[in-house]
Design a binder for these strands. Structure first.
Length: 498
RNA sequence: GCCCUCAUCGUCUAGUGGCCUAGGACGCUGCCCUUUCAAGGCAGAGAUCAGGGGUUCGAAUCCCCUUGAGGGCGCCA
């Protein structure tokens, strides 16, 4: 690309959990850095004093680490700083006067000015402009204050903001790495606030100062920042600084085509974790939202995304988030991990479900692994395994009714119970053999026997492979449950004949 | 209201003037495998490339208009 070192950043504002859109931006920055052997930086933009919280910072750290998006430089989870361009938290940068210094410099050079308009006044003029169908932008009232006016305002106690003096004519454009040529008429741009009355910088100001000072080479961010870019470019020009490259990623929409939000369900990385998605799934799926390679590859092995990612494969149009495909992908990843790993991932969900793991008669790892190819979500696991941890299974009324009403069930189940009781060795293999022998000897088709046994033992019509399930359940439990079902049949028949 | 952006199967997308009778993936349908459910294998339906004009021997690909969707117009980021 160029001989300058590749340095990119993810710069979230800590006003909540890491959103899916933010995670995607972080991921693309991370992949870009890895691909070009660059540096991935994490900067915290906490200049919204009202909404920024420490908890949000921690949550963002957690989510990023969960996704495996390790950063080389920036604010660290233990609140330390890593790298030579710190501090990496904007409130800390403000504290040492970085932003004020550049704001004063711009005033001195005539690129900025103090503005004493109150929020109420601004609000009013905005409303008026809208009503008169004019552009609702700041008109630059304080650009030329009458002599002595500023002092008067100061005496009244008004706290000024510092605004950037936007050029009145000409155009501001750039060559976006994703959108190509982009151009704005400067007449539409406005004198944005650089420093708030409280002294904190605004986003557009802090972003430029920090990106420059941190020697960011590529700014990769969401589409929603396209209209901020011309503002920032004019700032770069006034400061006489070289601009980074810009790449604007398309948005992520909910299933109804509107911007992904709370009403679409889960929107934060944390929620997806809780729902039972594997981090690799989320990472892989997010990569495919707005990026693809010419082979239309779907599943990427470890390290493969880092190798194959590029900005050329990025989509200009917004992408709709598809939970169905996400679930499919999670199943793919679950099928790929080892028995040990799967158990590790499943454990919190089993505990969350309140299952007494010591109550099982088999190794819990075996139980979890038995149906591994069916799981779509880790949170599916407790429900499927419940029968192994409880005295009685949850009986599915429909399955029970189907089995109970078959005339032969009584005979079949008592025969099977007797056979199981007498088995010298209670293993999957011997159980299967005994069951098949019983069916054959009594002239039943396999399914005629297997199905009622399954329901009697598990309470359900569907489940794990039958004989392994019975082995894991143990002889006592299996026989006990079959007997219990026989009781239910007799009760039902007794009531019927009355 | 003004500005900006975007537009290929339901969804994610391939495609950069002839290889496109538009390819892949998810989902859907059917068949096979099978003790159930899955998984797997095979087959299939599904897009007049938003609509309308051009340019060209030839357009999903280039140009214009229309429409629709999204973003922005904050002392939020």
């Amino acid at each position: 690309m160029e001989n300058k070192k590749t340095r990119v950043r993810f710069a979230p504002s800590p006003t909540g959990h890491l959103h899916i859109g933010g995670a995607r931006t972080a991921l693309f920055n991370y992949l870009f850095a890895r691909k070009y052997d660059g540096t991935f930086i994490l900067r915290i933009e906490d200049t919204d004093e009202l909404r920024s919280t420490k908890e949000s910072v921690e949550s963002i750290f957690d989510s990023m680490r969960w996704l495996g998006l390790v950063w080389d430089e920036g604010a660290m989870p233990d609140m330390s700083e890593k790298g030579e361009f710190g501090p990496y938290v904007q409130s800390r940068r403000e504290a040492v006067g970085i932003y004020r210094e550049y704001a004063e410099k711009l005033i001195k050079e005539g690129f900025a000015y103090r503005c004493y308009c109150t929020p109420e006044e601004l609000d009013e003029s905005r409303k008026k402009a809208l009503a008169e169908k004019r552009l609702p932008k700041y008109e630059g009232l304080c650009r030329h204050l009458a002599p002595g006016q500023a002092e008067k305002y100061e005496k009244e106690g008004r706290k000024p903001v510092i605004r950037f003096k936007m050029p009145d004519d000409g155009f501001t454009g750039w060559n976006d790495l994703i959108h190509k040529e982009l151009k704005f008429d400067n007449k539409l741009l406005y004198d944005f606030v650089m420093l708030k009355a409280g002294g904190y910088p605004t986003y557009n100001f802090a972003c430029v100062i920090d990106d420059h000072l941190m020697q960011i080479s590529h700014v990769i961010r969401g589409d929603d920042h396209i209209s901020n870019t011309p503002l920032q470019i004019n700032l770069y020009k006034a400061l006489g600084w070289e601009m980074p490259e810009f790449a604007h990623l398309s948005m992520i929409l909910g299933p109804d085509g509107t911007r992904l939000s709370k009403r679409h369900g889960a929107t934060s990385v944390q929620e997806y974790k809780k729902l039972g998605y594997l981090p690799d799934t989320v990472k892989n799926y997010l990569a495919l939202l707005g990026w693809s390679n010419p082979e239309s590859q779907q599943i990427f092995a470890e390290g493969e995304l880092e190798e194959k990612f590029n900005l050329d494969g990025c989509q200009k149009s917004p992408a709709t988030f598809d939970n169905v495909k996400l679930q499919w992908m999670n199943g793919e990843y679950i099928r790929k991990i080892s028995r040990e790993k799967l158990y590790e991932f499943a454990l919190p969900y089993l505990q969350e479900a309140g299952l007494d793991l010591s109550a099982a008669k088999a190794d819990v790892k075996d139980l979890v692994y038995m149906e591994f190819e069916k799981y779509k979500l880790l949170s599916d696991i407790p429900g499927r395994l419940e029968m192994f941890f409880k005295e009685e299974p949850a009986y599915d009324p429909k399955a029970m009714e189907d089995v109970l009403k078959k005339p032969e069930t009584d005979k079949i189940l008592s025969g099977i119970a007797a056979a199981y009781r007498e088995l010298p060795d209670f293993s999957e293999k011997s159980i299967e053999e005994a069951t098949r022998v019983f069916a054959k000897a009594n002239g039943y088709k396999n399914g005629q026997v297997f199905h009622p046994v399954r329901v009697a033992v598990s309470g359900r019509a569907q489940g794990p492979t039958l004989f392994k399930m019975i082995e894991y359940l143990s002889r006592e439990t299996a026989v006990k449950r079959i007997n219990k079902t026989l009781d239910m049949i007799r009760t039902a028949n007794g009531e019927k004949s009355k």
